[in-house]
Simulated assay, not measured.
Amino acid sequence: MFTGIVEELGEIVALEREGDSARLTVRGPLVVSDAVHGASIAVNGVCLTVTDVKDDAFTVDVMKETLDRSSLAALAPGSPVNLERPVRPSDRLGGHIVQGHVDGVGEIVSREPGDRWEVVTIGLPADLARYVVEKGSITVDGISLTVVEARDDAFTVALIPTTLELTTLGRKGPGDPVNLEVDVVAKYVERLVAAGTVRP
């Protein structure tokens, strides 16, 4: 489990395609400092399992399902990525509960700069819109954000200077893909209501 608070802006060192899967090597000195084989690290919001650690980089295998459901296939050597290690039971939950299970890929639609912040509009798949609500939480490329406005085909978020400086969202522009994970609580509530376990 993660919190959506990015610890480090890493970089893709290598991407090797292996049939319908891929192997990623990612540079991230901070997250590698205590990483071991089998550890989990979120890369742009995707929970991946470490298969190798060498110096300041780690390697992960990415299966077809993950490539199909996320924007990881669009990465290339040199691409910046948001990195986060799993939360420990003793840590503060600074963002919200993030599983690292991407629900779909959205797209940056527009950016509106303010004095020290920006409002970013992100398009999303129609089947995810019902889980996105004003002032609710959403994860974008592994970043826990608060929804400013929710529409049927898009939502907006306001990015503070820290987010702009220390994450990939400070570098992405219109047309760029982003990984989206909606609040898992909303999905559980929907399932329970549909099953008649909980009355709306």
Rank of each mutant, 00 (worst) to 15 (best):
Y188I: 12
M63E: 00
L145F: 06
G175C: 14
H96L: 03
P113E: 01
T168D: 02
V182E: 06
V182K: 04
T197D: 14
T162W: 08
V105E: 01
V6C: 02
D52P: 10
G78P: 11
P29Y: 04
A39N: 15
E181A: 08
D153E: 12
V120L: 13
D115T: 05
F2S: 07
G170N: 09
V185A: 12
M1E: 03
E181F: 09
T156M: 06
R199K: 13
V133I: 15
D115W: 01
A129C: 12
S90N: 09
E118S: 08
I5Y: 09
V60F: 14
L166W: 05
G114C: 01
G19N: 10
P113V: 00
G19T: 10
F155M: 09
V148C: 11
I41Y: 01
I5K: 06
E107H: 06
L166Y: 07
K187S: 05
V50W: 15
G45Q: 08
G173M: 09
E107I: 02
G104M: 00
H96I: 04
L67E: 01
I143M: 02
T139L: 08
V148H: 14
D55K: 11
L164V: 01
N179T: 01
Y188K: 11
V50C: 13
V132W: 10
L30P: 02
V109A: 12
D91H: 12
L67H: 01
T49S: 06
G106Q: 01
L180R: 14
V81E: 03
A126I: 00
S110G: 06
L72P: 00
L159Y: 11
D103G: 05
L145C: 04
V182C: 13
I160H: 09
A195P: 14
N179E: 04
E181I: 08
D68V: 02
E7C: 02
V120E: 04
R27S: 14
L166C: 09
K64D: 14
S40P: 09
R130F: 11
V53H: 11
L15M: 13
G196V: 08
L75S: 10
V182L: 03
A35P: 12
T162S: 06
R92V: 12
P80T: 00
E190M: 13
